[in-house]
Write a protein that binds this DNA or RNA. Structure first.
Lengths: 221, 221
DNA sequence: CACCAATCGTGTAACATTTCACAATTGTAG
DNA sequence: CTACAATTGTGAAATGTTACACGATTGGTG
């Protein structure tokens, strides 16, 4: 699902070495379902079976994925939900709040900057950049929009590692280059174009049209 | 594969069931890059090598993927860009314009409905639904927002097969059920929750937080 | 015309991922 | 205290995906 072209992962101090990226991609999904169970509050433990049923994944896959990081479950009873949430947050380095830069404050950047869903999931939109004089200076979700000219200085100074890119396709590669040059190591881009980044930088793509196109193949006329 | 199976596959009008979904997922990316080449307009042909370099994919993978659908290239010269675009559009059933329903006209649904990028890529936001009396009746991108109560009637009547879902997590499953019951077969959802749908219905997920979480694993602290 | 560089399509090998199936462990009920 | 149902973690088998390597074909050049 997901799109192709991601840079190769650097090693993490912990266990990162031989964990397949495809497994890493499933952990946020597990975490999301587990946090939902916490909210529901009607159970203390769950099983790989129950979790898998909710997510449409086999129980064996969940057990195997989790076993790459440790023994989190208990035979006969399953997984303690709160404990597993904690462990997944630790593995994914979500036991902190990452400041994120939003580049592009058009319709989409505006909507995402306002999105309340980052809270409690590890992220906070901390800076917003745009190149439109009308937009610069306005506040979005309590954050002042800065001119994109100051991007390098701010990101370097604040050691920002994560950025979201919501600019036109024509500007995406240049801005990605500037983000990388400013120390950003993870980019979530909404521009409908593949961008090239050096090794060690991760890119995730979100192109609604490409996602729709992936489904029409299966539709009847 | 035996010879018999091979010839059946060749003659079968419906090649869909032997094609891995992961290949289908790459075709829109190829198409996107090829359409960009068309826009650039400086070349008539391209090669699997050039395309792969742009996308960070091996040339062999591109050749193998395409070869599942036919022989589109020519030894020595590569692929005729316009022809390959046409073929990919045909394969992905993008040689028409699919009407899409947008469910949820909050910040995100609003932004997506306004997004100009659907044009010329096979889609058109044709209906917008919301449950907020303030929003219903307003126009977004020239489309009148209807009350979600009328969803079933409209989608059935218009035979809509594709929907985008931009509603809170708590409402997502119920609305997905209603979409499916109304004949929708492909759902692109922005709600941060896994939804369950019957066989034959495709779902694509776009949860910005999950995508960010997938990258933090690789970041240094 | 003969040669050569470019490039495809593809069989096969290598590698990656998922599923299976079961011993081991746990908590519970009688 | 024992029997049992639930459930994990995991080695091995099955399945799926990618990369390699090469014959075949093409168009261009001398």
């Amino acid at each position: 699902m997901t799109e192709i072209e991601e840079s190769i992962a650097e090693e993490s101090p912990d266990v990162a070495h031989d964990i397949p990226d495809i497994v890493i991609g499933r952990l946020p999904i597990y975490l999301r379902a587990l946090m939902r169970m916490v909210e529901e509050g009607d159970k203390v433990t769950t099983s790989s079976q129950e979790l898998g049923d909710r997510l449409g994944v086999s129980s064996a896959q969940i057990r195997k994925d989790l076993s790459l990081f440790g023994d989190f479950g208990k035979q006969g009873t399953g997984y303690h939900i709160n404990y597993l949430v904690q462990q997944l947050q630790r593995i994914l380095k979500l036991d902190r709040e990452w400041p994120v830069a939003m580049v592009g404050a058009g319709f989409l950047g505006h909507a995402l900057a306002n999105y309340g869903g980052f809270k409690n999931r590890g992220f906070r939109v901390a800076w917003i950049f745009d190149n439109d004089p009308e937009t610069v200076g306005q506040k979005i979700g309590g954050i002042m929009v800065r001119h994109v000219d100051g991007l390098e200085r701010v990101l370097r100074r604040e050691k920002v590692q994560i950025a979201m890119l919501a600019v036109p396709a024509t500007a995406a590669q240049e801005l990605a280059d500037r983000l990388v040059a400013s120390g950003v190591r993870a980019i979530l881009t909404y521009a409908p174009i593949s961008i090239n980044v050096p090794e060690g930088v991760k890119v995730q793509y979100s192109d609604p049209v490409a996602q729709l196109q992936r489904m029409t193949f299966y539709l009847d006329v």
